[in-house]
Every structure is written in C-alpha cells, then in structure tokens.
Simulated assay, not measured.
Amino acid sequence: MTERASPTEGPAPSVFETLLRTVEEMDTPDGFKAELIRGKIIVSPWPRPRHLRRMRALREQLQAHAPDGHVAETAPFLFRFSAAERAYGPDLFVADETAFDGEGRHADGAALSLVGEFTSVSTRDADWNEKLDVYGGLVPVYLVVDMQDSEITCFRDPSPHGYRSRTTVSFGEALPLPEPFGFAIDTTGF
C-alpha cells in the first residue's frame, strides 16, 4: 500500500493564532496575567494591592460617564488586536458589553472605548511603547497611570499613525477626558 498525503481541513493556523490559543489555555497563577507582546507570551503580575484604591476610584468615575452599553472593569480579560498580532489584558478598561457575549476566551480590541494601564517597573516599557503604538491605532482613549512618576496621561484621537493628542497631569490635578466620556478625572486620591 502506498502512502499518500491526506488533505487537511483549512489552512494551518498562523503563529499569532497558535500563540493566542496557547495564552488562552494557560493556567497562570493567581495574581498574574499572560499577554502577547512583541510576538512573545509575557506573564506579568496584576497591579499591586496598593494600587487597588486608585484603580477602584478610576473605574467608578469612568463607569459613571461610560457610553451607553459600555462597562468599566478591572477584571482579567484578554483583548485581541489581530492586525497587530497582539493580545493584551489591560489593568482597567471600558468596553462595549456585547464584546463578552461570545464563547471565546478573548474579546475583540475594537470593542474598547478606553484602556488604562498602571505602570510598574516590569511593565513600564510595554505600557509606554508597545501598547501605546497598538492602542493608538484603534482605542479612542488610552490612560497611562504612571506609578513611578505620580502622573496620569490621557492619549486620545487614534489614527493609523498613533494618537494625535495627549495631556499629562500630576496626581492631585484634574485630567480632562474627551467624548464619549466628556468629564475630568479627579486624581486627588491618587
């Protein structure tokens, strides 16, 4: 009997799809998240407990001004950015609730109306560079809460070349957010 190649169904998954599936199937330890950054699976800790009050204060303010049908959360969800072949689990996000209706273990990054990242020594570079580039092509508002410099930066007006505008204030100052939020974040408790 001669051996013959047997046809497979559909094209082989891309490296991105394979890595994304691996991230989805990972059983990361409590307090850690796995993301696809620069084509690699990166496991990093969630923000430290000392960030809880700041995260909660920011989430509550955002939820009160979120667009209809959007939810502000700090839950560990993975968002996929297929065009950039990335998948991130933001520290805080505001997204269309319908993005969570599917059966998969990740949501489409296009559902995000805002992302917030709280920097740490280990994540600072990715938050300020890698994620800024990817979010800047799609997500309307990106907040970088820089815990090392005690500042918060709002990036807005995404374009294919990144964000067109940014505003930075020190903790304790009000940070204006553009529409669809249209209010100023109170950072006095930060």
Rank of each mutant, 00 (worst) to 15 (best):
P158H: 08
P176E: 07
T153E: 09
D149I: 10
F171V: 01
S159W: 00
C154D: 02
A184C: 14
R166Y: 05
G189P: 00
L175F: 07
A174K: 15
D186P: 10
I152T: 06
G182T: 10
R164D: 06
S159F: 08
T153P: 00
T153M: 11
S159C: 05
Y163G: 05
Y163P: 06
D157A: 15
E151R: 15
V169W: 10
T153Y: 02
Y163E: 00
L177R: 00
T168I: 05
E179Q: 12
V169R: 09
T187Y: 03
P176Q: 11
F171Y: 14
D149K: 11
V169S: 01
S165G: 13
F155D: 10
Y163K: 01
P178I: 03
T188V: 11
T188F: 00
S170M: 04
P160L: 09
E179F: 06
T168F: 09
P178Y: 00
F181I: 02
G172P: 00
F183W: 08
P178L: 07
F171S: 04
E173K: 06
L175I: 06
V169M: 04
E173F: 07
F183Y: 14
S165C: 11
R164T: 10
P178M: 11
P176L: 11
G162Y: 01
I185Q: 05
S159I: 04
L175D: 05
